[in-house]
Amino acid sequence: MGRATLYVPGLSSMADVATIASLNILGEVAKKTAQFGTPLIVPTSDPIVYTVAREVVKESYTAAGRPDAFHQDIVFFVTDQQFAFAAAVDGIMTREKPATNFLIGMFWAESLILAETGAATGAIQIAGTDAIAQLPFFITACDYTLIGEELYAASAYISREPVLLGAIKAQDYAKALITIIIVAFSLIALGLNLPVLKWL
């Protein structure tokens, strides 16, 4: 008990939708840490992400009725250099030994370095990314992984807001429609002997 929660919102900028989705989840995570009085550590690799993350955490602490528990040290900027950031976060993991590591957002080659170090410290790890190349690393090294679109659905799912949940349902319908269209047109192409057959 009393060990910290580490939240890494990826290494991308605010221009990346995955980062925005990650910050939405951070808001809900911060509410929980504020409620239970758990220390929260949020290292960031982009100055704009740092500013937004700080506001998100501050608002969440206020919404949870614990504005006094928020301090400037929770969210901080580390560096925008990929491996320097990985080294700094690895250092935080080994020194502070957080009980939970959230690795949610956009990651590149540093994903496995972070996830394996976290696994070595014995933390429960929850990862989420839409970077397909990094998903196998997270699935291997983390306890729970949000795969692709689950990253975007997660914040709506946690917040339980009807409008946001409705958007997820619409996405599922769109996916079903796209699948039907792909299957139907593939069958039509095969049936009508279109030039597509020459490529098969």
């Binding site: 939708v17 989705a21 397909i132 795969i147 679109e149 975007y152 997820i168 996405q171």
Partner: peptide, 15 residues
């Protein structure tokens, strides 16, 4: 996975 990701990006951007 990519289909889901692209739809997720589209829906989140719109929201």
């Amino acid at each position: 996975i990519l289909f889901g990701v692209e739809l997720g990006i589209f829906a989140t951007s719109l929201k």
